[in-house]
Design a protein around this nucleic acid. Sequence first.
DNA 1: AAATTTTACCTAGCCTGGCTAGCAATTCTG
DNA 2: CAGAATTGCTAGCCAGGCTAGGTAAAATTT
Lengths: 169, 169
Amino acid sequence: MSTPPGSGAPSTAYWFDDSDPAVPLLQAVRRFRRADEEMRRGMETDMDVNATDLEALRHVIAHERAGTPVTARGLSGHLHISTASTAKLLNRLSESGHIRRRPHPGDRRSVIVTATEHTHEEVRGWLSPMHQRMLQAARDVPEESRQAVVDFLDSLAESLIPEPEDGDG
Amino acid sequence: MSTPPGSGAPSTAYWFDDSDPAVPLLQAVRRFRRADEEMRRGMETDMDVNATDLEALRHVIAHERAGTPVTARGLSGHLHISTASTAKLLNRLSESGHIRRRPHPGDRRSVIVTATEHTHEEVRGWLSPMHQRMLQAARDVPEESRQAVVDFLDSLAESLIPEPEDGDG
DNA sequence: AAATTTTACCTAGCCTGGCTAGCAATTCTG
DNA sequence: CAGAATTGCTAGCCAGGCTAGGTAAAATTT
């Protein structure tokens, strides 16, 4: 083995066995996750909203663009917070001018949430250049490796699902 | 054409132009991110600690394994929370039996944080099978595509760094 | 080496953003 | 149509951030 037991462990690769050629891939994944977190933090700071509110805005905008507008209920589900917390969130975001509540055309109990034009611009300002760069990164992946990348990512996603404890039946 | 302008947009690919062959890669990235979030949520629930505390435990354990133990200060920096909040966090986690404070051998102001054996086991129970699966996923990437994967991920990470506003200069 | 500044950590007390409970309006169902 | 279910709201609680301010130890200056 490459990490001699009992010796001072290497500083970069905590858990890892350096000799495994698969390790650099997981290290790259780790770097990506870190960068993702930092990006979110930067965006929160810049737009002066918390993480949940930011994700809410992102969701609202995405659905607005897709023409499948979002209700308070739907938002609550997406964010995994209660409908009560969602009501508070909507209050915050409408007071700060980020979103607007609109009546749902087909259900008078329900509320449609839309982003204000200002919010659209603000988010576009952040996301669209970022998105362009990400798209370019994806285009730079050689044709013959694209499927491998997709498979790897999906396989990773699969890895994160906990193995079902073999219970009774 | 794939996304007829003005028509009702497709539900899966909000922002995307389906015709770009790079898009499936970003969609896979998105699926991975989602899975990652869900994994964390599951772990929080299962171990009955909040996200910050969980990340703290992870960090402590990783550093413990690497033989570079972590101080309260270091933890505070890693988590991006104040030293005061870190003190509270350490109180929570030591009351719940997850960690222990130890004197720093070389600096009597400082505190070394270690995880209890129980915590090590608990985290190992979650992470090491997951890690095995991730490692397998990485090994399954064909040799000739590995570099492309690493490059893509690093390039994505790079993409997340906001472009420097061209200011005065 | 004495005095000063900086650093690591702590407690006290505040505020934001979750939560449950409970209500009104609307829609669905038998 | 009566009763059950669903959507969203307010009220009020609590966890987990924060700033302010204190002490002890270490580092730096004089």
